[in-house]
Computed example of a mutant assay.
Amino acid sequence: MKYRSVFRPGLFAGQVAVVTGGGSGIGRCTAHELAALGARVALIGRNASKLESVCAEIADAGGIATAHPCDIREEEAVRQTVAEVLAAHGRIDALLNNAGGQFPAALRDISLKGWEAVVRTNLTGGFLMARECLQQWMQDKGGAIVNITADNWGSMPGMGHSGAARAGMVSFTETAAMEWAPYGVRVNAVAPGYVASSGMDAYPPAMAPLLRSAADGVPLKRMATEAEISAAIVFLLSEAASFITGTVLRVDGGRPQMRAGWPQMQSKEGMDRPAVRPFQGFPLARPPKVLQSDEG
């Protein structure tokens, strides 16, 4: 089954796209879409077996992908991995900084080790990947970068370490867009809201009720599909976004605008109409287990 992209065939033909966190979730989905549109994809992540599995999926669908295990938090490892990608593919036209991770905890209970682990994964690693892609290729040839941040507008109670890192990623995106524009490099970010992705199954069972009720706080009364996030990323990496840089594209169903008690927002009338119906472009997507039953 081929990826059902809304973009024209061959959009990224001859290009190479690097995708961090490419072994699962949004990264896996976006890697499939980019490959389906003609890009050669370099998958980066810490779990080699997951990367190889996605490479095999992409090959089965007629695309080309290579696996490059790397801990993006380690500077020298990132430097060597970007060089490895260039040796394998000869160029880097696009970078998706998608790798991330966090754990639920109140700020008062987060240790220094826990704080630094999340910040290094969600912010520092993205900086290192972007810097190396710039220095080793894009400052001479140009390119496009998309950073993944989060729906952290206002606050992220229970995930303060992630909120701080993601807010930092927004500022990094804006600054890099300014500094790197002379090189012909565009830098943007995508901020997903609640996404029905495999990452939800990584949270402790105690969070299952909260995750299953999350869509109630979204005006569109549902979660995003992985393909809806991927489509936003692919647009920002494409030539159609050639005059867009330094911006954050929210893909969150309007959640930050939700106001408690606002009567219009309690109705689900119209939620199955074409303009808001879930886009299911990724044939291999499966809902997270936590959303499939009340038992989680």
Rank of each mutant, 00 (worst) to 15 (best):
Q135L: 15
V6G: 14
T121Q: 14
A13N: 10
A31Q: 03
F235I: 01
Q264D: 14
T124I: 08
A88V: 02
V85N: 03
P283S: 13
N122I: 06
D201I: 02
L291D: 05
A165T: 14
M159V: 12
G158N: 01
A231V: 10
G270Y: 10
F243K: 11
E76H: 15
L220G: 09
M138Y: 01
C133P: 13
P263Q: 11
G100S: 13
A106V: 06
F103M: 08
D151I: 04
M223C: 06
I58V: 03
A144E: 03
D71C: 07
R166W: 09
M200D: 02
R186Q: 04
V85H: 05
A17K: 10
G101I: 06
T149D: 08
A189N: 02
R73Y: 03
H32Y: 03
S242W: 11
G126A: 05
D216M: 11
V248A: 13
A227R: 02
A177V: 12
D252V: 06
G62I: 05
R222S: 00
G160F: 03
T81M: 10
C70I: 06
L220C: 13
T247V: 10
M159S: 13
P288T: 12
N98K: 01
P263F: 15
H68S: 08
A177I: 06
P278I: 02
S24C: 09
K113W: 14
R166A: 13
L284N: 09
F282Y: 15
R212W: 11
V78T: 01
D93H: 02
A191C: 08
A214D: 08
W137Y: 14
A105H: 05
G217W: 06
A177P: 10
M1D: 15
W153L: 14
A165Y: 04
D272H: 08
P256N: 05
T247C: 13
L96K: 07
K141Y: 12
G100R: 14
P256R: 02
L134V: 13
F282M: 04
V16H: 03
E132Q: 11
A189G: 03
D272K: 04
V234N: 00
Y183S: 12
P288I: 05
S198N: 10
P192S: 09
A117I: 00
R28A: 08
T20S: 11
P9L: 08
M156W: 10
G270H: 02
N147Q: 01
A215T: 09
E84V: 10
R91E: 02
Q292W: 15
K289Q: 14
L37A: 07
G38E: 14
G22Y: 07
A285K: 05
S5L: 04
P278G: 03
K50F: 15
R259A: 15
V290H: 06
L37H: 04
H32P: 08
C133V: 12
R8W: 11
A176K: 08
I92P: 01
G142C: 00
A36D: 04
G143C: 08
L134E: 07
Y3Q: 12
M265S: 12
G254L: 00
G270K: 04
H89K: 03
Y3K: 09
G126T: 05
D272R: 05
W262Q: 15
T245H: 12
S197G: 01
S197F: 02
N98G: 08
P274H: 05
Y183Q: 11
V234H: 07
R40Q: 09
H161M: 09
S238M: 04
Y3V: 05
M223Q: 00
S267T: 03
N97D: 15
G261V: 06
G21C: 08
G114I: 00
